[in-house]
């Protein structure tokens, strides 16, 4: 049955409407969970607030288990799910830039729009920087095109390279996630901050 768009059960245009609605829901929940506060977001790097880690990993493992069950019931064909292909060097460079920007600015791209929507000025500045970054990347594309496309690895899956079943890998990730939550909560007690 699924994915609905890939199996042409819904059209690409309907797909965009769903994406729009899910996007609004995503932003709404992010704002409701306090993700529009850059202090809260930066807390994960200093250990006083690990809600970012907990929320995103909970969402990740819930979606992962849900998809595996959907696949088990034949509701979705996982081979049709789009997975970002890996370009190793640009993935590393992108991760470093994104991480540095996250610590400096206190937002990730999604949460910056979230915070801008409730009128935070620092978020507007962050979005300005984001647009400048896009402009530099786009205009200078010829300069880093080779690097950008280097070391293409296809769509590697950790479970495949370890020779594990997807379900077993999912169990390991869930256990690791809960261990991380436990470490996170420990860090919150260890490095508490009164006001942020």
């Amino acid at each position: 049955m699924g994915p609905l768009a890939a199996n042409e059960i819904i059209s690409q245009d309907t797909n965009l409407i769903f994406a729009f609605l899910i996007g609004i829901g995503f932003g709404f929940v992010l704002e409701g969970a306090g993700f529009s506060s850059s202090r809260k977001l930066a807390g994960v790097f200093y250990g006083y607030d690990t809600v970012v880690l907990k929320v995103f990993f909970t969402a990740g493992i819930t979606a992962m288990i849900g998809l595996l069950f959907f696949s088990l019931f034949g509701w979705i064909d996982l081979s049709l799910i789009y997975i970002n292909p890996t370009f190793l060097y640009s993935a590393i460079a992108g991760g470093v830039i994104m991480g540095a920007g996250f610590i400096l600015g206190g937002f990730c791209p999604g949460t910056s729009f979230c915070a801008a929507s409730i009128g935070k000025i620092d978020a507007l500045v962050f979005i300005g920087g984001l647009l400048i970054g896009i402009l530099i990347f786009g205009e200078g594309y010829a300069l880093w095109e080779g690097f950008y496309n280097a070391k293409f690895l296809g769509i590697p899956k950790i479970s495949e390279s370890l020779g594990l079943k997807d379900g077993l890998m999912a169990l390991i990730i869930v256990l690791v996630a809960f261990a991380m939550f436990w470490v996170g909560e420990w860090a919150e007690k260890k490095f508490p901050r009164e006001e942020y």
């Binding site: 493992i61 288990i65 696949s71 079943k165 379900g167 077993l168 999912a170 169990l171 869930v174 256990l175």
Partner: peptide
């Protein structure tokens, strides 16, 4: 979540 993950780890993949 952990029991669900254990079930999904135990069943053969579709």
């Amino acid at each position: 979540l952990i029991p669900m993950a254990m079930i999904i780890a135990a069943v053969p993949s579709n």
